[in-house]
């Protein structure tokens, strides 16, 4: 079973204590944005086989949202961090790079349309 640590309250628990919330760091577009922006925000996802940044809620604990860096092909969790950020903090990026040499933040988005 997958284990996550909630950075808000510090509790480490099994995945059943948490609720997954999908891809993190999406730009939330508001009124006046283009159809493309809205489509991207609402529906288009990176869905990588590998390093994934995602939202989780500590549903059966403190109730707060946080972010996790995880590998979707191995279920390895590289680290969790506060949701109050638009990109993963440097130590999370370093933790991922250490385990997945050659990985770069936003590699996928840069290449995609």
């Amino acid at each position: 079973m997958m284990m996550l640590t909630c950075p808000n309250c510090g509790v480490t628990a099994e995945e059943t204590e948490f609720h997954p919330g999908g891809e993190a760091h999406l730009t939330r577009h508001g009124p006046g944005s283009s159809d493309d922006d809205f489509e991207g925000y609402l529906f288009l996802r990176e869905n990588p086989r590998g390093v994934h940044f995602e939202r989780w809620r500590h549903a059966h604990g403190c109730g707060k949202w946080f972010h996790a860096a995880r590998d979707t092909a191995t279920l390895e969790v590289f680290g969790t961090y506060s949701a109050q950020t638009t990109e993963p903090p440097q130590e999370i990026k370093d933790a991922v790079s250490a385990k997945r040499p050659g990985w770069r933040w936003r590699d996928i988005s840069d290449g995609g349309a």
Binding site: G22, F43, L44, R45, N47, P48, R49, G111, G112
Partner: peptide, 18 residues
């Protein structure tokens, strides 16, 4: 399930999660 991976190779994103 691998549609996202292949779409990325073709250079576009899909409204899909695996």
């Amino acid at each position: 399930g691998h549609s996202g991976v292949l779409a990325e190779k073709a250079g576009f994103r899909l409204p899909i999660e695996s």
